[in-house]
């Protein structure tokens, strides 16, 4: 089992403020790099608006925020490639996504950059508007209700993503 430390140590940066940006942190220790023997799998990850990304490696961590009845949720995965790099994947799934979903995938040389990909993801953009804006019969009151509903969905997408990310990063820690 490789050592993966993705937590932030205290002491060196004290005091921590709840709004101190991640960019103010020094990169933490990362998992060992370089080719790995055994356990490699070929992956082909779907990407929204781009060709699939294929690589050979293994999945280091995965967490899904799926729950029954949820309109939308996020699934996070981190892979280590046989070339010593990392691939971060954010899947947006749910009833409102239909068959399409959204697939945010990026490759990085360092684990720190991959972690920041997760940390800086803006889940607001993952919410698709379902307001029937072209419906001429839509009254102003209905439009207001639709807008308020969309605002709640956006807020919940952000909150839900942050909760999934918290569980993902915490579970990733392997001493």
């Amino acid at each position: 089992m490789n050592v993966i430390n993705v937590y932030e140590p205290i002491g060196a940066y004290e005091p921590y403020g709840v709004y101190e940006p991640m960019s103010a942190r020094e990169p933490g220790p990362a998992a060992p790099r370089g080719p790995r023997a055994g356990g490699a799998t070929a992956f082909t990850l779907r990407r929204s608006g781009a060709r699939p990304l294929s690589f050979t490696g293994r999945r280091l961590a995965h967490h899904s925020g799926e729950r029954s009845g949820a309109a939308q949720w996020h699934e996070l995965s981190l892979y280590a490639t046989d070339e010593g790099g990392y691939v971060a994947e954010i899947r947006v799934q749910g009833a409102t996504q239909g068959e399409a979903g959204q697939f945010h995938v990026a490759a990085f040389e360092e684990m720190e950059a991959a972690l920041r990909f997760f940390e800086t993801h803006d889940a607001r953009h993952d919410v698709a508007s379902d307001i029937p804006i072209d419906d001429a019969a839509l009254s102003p009151a209905e439009l207001m209700v639709h807008a308020a509903t969309l605002k709640v969905r956006v807020a919940e997408a952000v909150s839900g993503y942050r909760a999934v990310l918290s569980a993902f990063l915490t579970a990733m820690h392997r001493p």
Partner: peptide
């Protein structure tokens, strides 16, 4: 928890949207 200083254990404190605090 994991091995640490005498009397102290390693603690991970999850944080919404951020890496956990480890100490």
């Amino acid at each position: 928890g994991m091995e640490g200083a005498p009397g102290f254990d390693f603690v991970l404190a999850p944080r919404q949207g951020r890496r956990p605090l480890g100490f």
